[in-house]
Amino acid sequence: MIVAIASGKGGTGKTTIAVNMALSLRKHKTVQLLDCDVEEPNAAIFLNPKFDAEEEISIPIPSVDNELCNLCGRCAEVCFFHAIAVLGNHVLTFPELCHGCGGCTLFCPTGAITEKPETIGTIATGYAQDISFVQGRLKPSSTATATLIKEVRRRAANLDAVLIDAPPGTSCPVVASVNKADFCLLVTEPTPFGLNDLVLAVDMVRALNIPLGVIINRSDENDDIIKEYCGKNDIPILMSIPFQRQYAAYYAQGIPLVEAAPEWEQAFQNLWDDIERRSR
């Protein structure tokens, strides 16, 4: 079963949930964690995985042979991303706008365009104890976040629990991370920002037709704003983790909650059983 952990708002505790769930389940289940927050992958800080392979991921971008090009402009006409243009007697390409769709190469009448790989980042795979771990890392200055995330997703194994640590937000990188998961956990905090972004995230997950549940992190006396919204919209709250300065201190040092406070292990196992029941 694939469970995505997303949030809308950043910094609510997605990685905390993904990491602690993985550590809590590993004794009884086969577990994989996919770090799909490829712009800022943080799960490895808590799990210290041993990577045994790292591959470069690239997208195909056009390369123009000036000898064969007759400057007809067909490539610029078919490219809806304006990633290729004819200027005077030159063809210019803009790799940062290219989606790698192959249109220019396909439709060039003189065969002047071939494709060359442009690196967008890396994917490292390995193990953290017995947790299979996959991490995508976007190359700084690349704009192909969603493409790299799709590549990370393709490395999902057929295990009992595949956990996806998603990026913040609600747009294409999050959609690429969450799409076709069996269940989505949305992590929020009891603040007006947390609620605002939770509402956006719920709309997104529902548009993808994925069952969902909410976790309130840094739960405190203001929880009612989240509870009221969830109650009205029929959304189950599956777990609450109270705000404690000590928990914040563990997080600051990169220490997983269940290692410092093992009483949480059972809670995460119960959470998983609950998700299994709900996603059926």
Binding site: G10, E40, L138, T145, P168
Partner: peptide, 10 residues
């Protein structure tokens, strides 16, 4: 600004 280092930040 947005979080991350991807296309909205750029």
């Amino acid at each position: 600004g947005p979080p991350g280092i991807g296309c909205p930040v750029i």
